[in-house]
Design a protein around this nucleic acid. Structure first.
Lengths: 150, 150
DNA sequence: ATTAAAATTTTTAAGCTTAAAGTATTTTTT
DNA sequence: AAAAAATACTTTAAGCTTAAAAATTTTAAT
């Protein structure tokens, strides 16, 4: 019964991924809170907007981050209050809005991002370059949206 | 500058882990909701209690799950309402409570757990046993709580 | 042109999550 | 024994998250 062992091994892998991910996220949350007075969700949104200088539609943003529409609405609301983001009307479609980092938001994110990379580098200190690359490639093809399994 | 490349590779690894973890969690949430009318946090709590037949103190539970005390309080409240869990007084210490699966909770979890393993097995279909094992071992030693990094 | 359908976003209700403050109890110090 | 400190848990306030419903606007069908 190799299928049985394989299944158990995959379950163990999942549980460990979950543990590591939570630990790292928890560390990032704390650092972002104490050193930059912000949150991980806000950081994630800003990262997505930083990559596209012209900003993104709310739609695209929520698809890219894999979170719900309503969720993004709330986070953007707060980022606008903070002066990091602005909503810009889209000509020709009054349903949609484009969302864009302000200059202040861009500067603020730029500072956080380089620290963020240092934090990650330290947290993954035990992972050699080949392993990082290998695992990264493996995860890249995973997971396919759940195939039928009853 | 190998250190630079290593840092980037680790960052990429982290982003991919995050993506996969979110995708899997999202699938699990949906399955648990539609097929068992429950949530992932409740499932996690029940899993911890299932492993210890005598139950756990609130304290131990929150440490094991790496979430805050107050968080566990709320989830247990709801599990008690659902009849899946009961709070039991501890003799000799009126501050603490032991929390335990009821028979109904135990039966309910048992059913969910076997499906859960099938779902994970399907989601990680692309991962061979050796890879699962190898990555699992690597993650097992990760991460050490953030070492000093300014 | 009207109507129906689809698309885009926001709102709502319920639950999850944390940090910080609060309550009660036990243990340690003086 | 009284005071102080530590422990165990709950409550609170703020924010995150989702699914579902609602509001608005655009596109497609008749």
């Amino acid at each position: 019964m190799t299928a049985e062992r394989l299944s158990k091994e995959r379950l163990r892998l999942w549980l460990r991924m979950l543990r590591v991910t939570r630990q790292v996220e928890s560390t990032l949350r704390e650092r972002l809170r104490t050193e930059h007075d912000t949150t991980l969700p806000r950081f994630d949104v800003m990262a997505a907007l930083y990559a596209d200088r012209d900003g993104l539609k709310m739609n695209e943003l929520s698809r890219r981050l894999r979170v719900s529409n309503g969720n993004v609405t709330g986070i953007i609301d707060r980022l606008v209050e903070d002066g990091c983001v602005e909503r810009i009307a889209i000509e020709g479609d009054r349903r949609a809005t484009r969302v864009c980092l302000t200059d202040a938001g861009r500067a603020s994110f730029s500072k956080m991002a380089s620290e963020h990379e240092r934090w990650i580098n330290a947290l993954f200190e035990g992972v050699a370059e080949e392993d990082a690359h290998h695992i990264g490639e493996l995860l890249h093809r995973l997971p396919t949206p759940l195939s039928d399994v009853t």
